[in-house]
Amino acid sequence: MLLSVLVLLIAAWRFDWRVWLADKTRQHLCFGAAIALVPLWMLQAGVKEGLEVHFLGLTTLALMLGWRMGLLMGSLSLLLITLFGFETPEALGANLLLGVIVPLTFSYFVFLLTYSYLIRHLFVYIFVAGFFNAALTIAVKTLSFAGYMLWSGQYNGQTVMDNYLGILPLLLFPEALLNGMAITLLVVFRPQWMRTFFDRDYLVNK
């Protein structure tokens, strides 16, 4: 929990709050994105307590809001579902670090790699930074939680494999499709909402 709070403080410390507070549209977008994740994260499935799975949507959040605000709004979503009773307060630290900070940071890092080393094209943004990135992100989140469960001794390796990791292949394509479709719609109809999408890079002279 302390590590998670430290990361969030770093994200909030360097954020330009004056500009954000002056932009009501941006505020509504940020809080709307956080609220949109709540029902998505409520749709959990699992056999063992603590080994539930759900779709993330964090790749879309990272590409929409950027790393700093994405972390803060993702943390808000987690806090809400914890208050609603879908997650236990005791697991808040692990959920915050492994369920929000690690996967969202990884997702944003993949975007930075695509932006730096791949051709800046609309389809690269949608399919690589969006679609494939989302599949990798949910894999990182699932593997991180599996490692934590084994390290903490809550479950043995066979239980984690049978009841958690075994479900991962079934999540990859739906998670990728969900984020890919969301990013496609946003880029086409609301490109101004995407903090990481720039017309001059992805559309001009393409």
Rank of each mutant, 00 (worst) to 15 (best):
T88N: 08
L79P: 03
F86C: 01
L112W: 10
A91I: 06
V100N: 08
N95K: 00
G99E: 07
L92D: 01
P103C: 11
L76Q: 09
F106H: 08
L113S: 09
N95M: 02
G85C: 10
G74T: 02
F111I: 06
E90P: 04
I101G: 01
L80G: 12
G74C: 03
F111G: 05
M73C: 14
F84Y: 14
A91D: 14
L71Y: 00
I81W: 07
L83N: 12
T88G: 02
G93M: 08
I101S: 02
P103F: 05
G99D: 09
T114S: 11
E90W: 07
A91F: 09
I101Y: 02
V100W: 05
L113W: 12
L76S: 12
F109R: 09
Y108G: 00
V100G: 02
S107A: 13
L76K: 04
P89T: 11
L83A: 15
A91H: 09
L104G: 06
L80E: 11
T105I: 06
A94T: 12
L97Q: 01
G93L: 06
V102K: 05
I101K: 10
I101T: 01
G93S: 12
L104R: 03
I101M: 07
G85S: 10
L112Y: 07
G99R: 03
R68F: 09
L76R: 03
G93A: 13
S77I: 03
L78Y: 04
V102F: 10
S107N: 09
T114I: 12
A94G: 07
F111H: 12
P89G: 13
L72V: 08
E87D: 10
I101E: 04
L83H: 14
L80T: 15
Y108R: 00
T88V: 00
E87V: 02
L113E: 08
L83Y: 13
G74L: 00
T82A: 14
S75K: 06
L96S: 06
L96N: 01
L83F: 15
T82W: 13
G74P: 02
S107P: 10
P103G: 15
A94R: 11
L112G: 05
T82I: 12
Y115T: 01
L113C: 14
V110C: 13
L71T: 03
V100H: 06
V110Y: 05
P89D: 11
F86L: 03
M69K: 01
A94L: 10
L71V: 02
